[in-house]
Amino acid sequence: MSPTPSLREDAARLLREGRVKLVIGYRAHAGGGQGPAVPEGACRAPLAGGGGRRPAFIEEAHRAGELVFDGACSQNLAAYLKKPEVRARMPLAIVASEAVGRSLVSLAAESQFAQGALLALAFRGERYEGVKEVEELAALAREAAPEPRRDPDIGRRLAELAAWPAQRRAEWWSARFSRCTRCYACRAACPGCYCQRCVTERNVPQWVSTAALGHGNYAWNMIRAFHQAGRCTLCGACASACPQGLPLMLLNTFLAAQAAEQFDVEAGLDPAAKPLIGTWDPEDDNSFFT
């Protein structure tokens, strides 16, 4: 049976009972088109297409019938929690695929919303799991992914890069970063990039050049990736949003693997997790110091 009826019922009930002021989910796009074709080798369909799905912001119970959920719902809705107009409507409920669920758990760990201010209409794959608190969402995420999931293709690409001399790696990355137009779609799409004033926009002093040239592009892409270290849940929203198709998931996956290997950290599974950067352990790796 399609999960949609129970999703709509739960959403309508939460709104009717006044438990939430807003439900964020997906609706079918009026045009219903598939958007631009998925380019060869891209991680996901670009957001512009959205697979015929659009975000839905529902405040009245009678509109809950608009909600849909299926495999085409790929946009990470957790990114809307950055918006003041959305935050003003808490408590709210959010339709949470596994990827969205992990983002929500990660945001809870960083105290980005008050306890009880957010409910998830949780999915595991395409199976509807019901209304979940953040704690239950985390349990669901741990159950769904007992082992860290990494894209094997990305693992192969990283191994290939690691085998190259440094100069070749630099040239390869420079060629890719040179395409960056600094549109910051990666930042806008990422639920974790929630600073009200991004470091790239600080100009006294200016640390990251905003011109879309090699040095600024390199610094921006390094800082964006580094600020996600130990926090990124590998949802892929940044790479999907990138109009230039930069291989951002290589950077994210690499850092997630490093966080796991060096510090045994897996983001988005524990709402009580301490931040990786910002805590320390006297037993941390000291081998690279002379």
Binding site: L158, A162, R169, M222, F226, L276, F288, T290
Partner: peptide, 30 residues
């Protein structure tokens, strides 16, 4: 604990920079 905080950051940063072409000959810690 400033150096402990820093050590954790650099453990990740140096790997990221290495991946993108700034290897350990160019970035050293002591």
């Amino acid at each position: 604990s400033g150096n402990y905080h820093a050590r954790r950051r650099w453990g990740l940063l140096r790997k990221l920079l290495d991946l993108t072409g700034i290897d350990s000959r160019r970035l050293q810690f002591s």
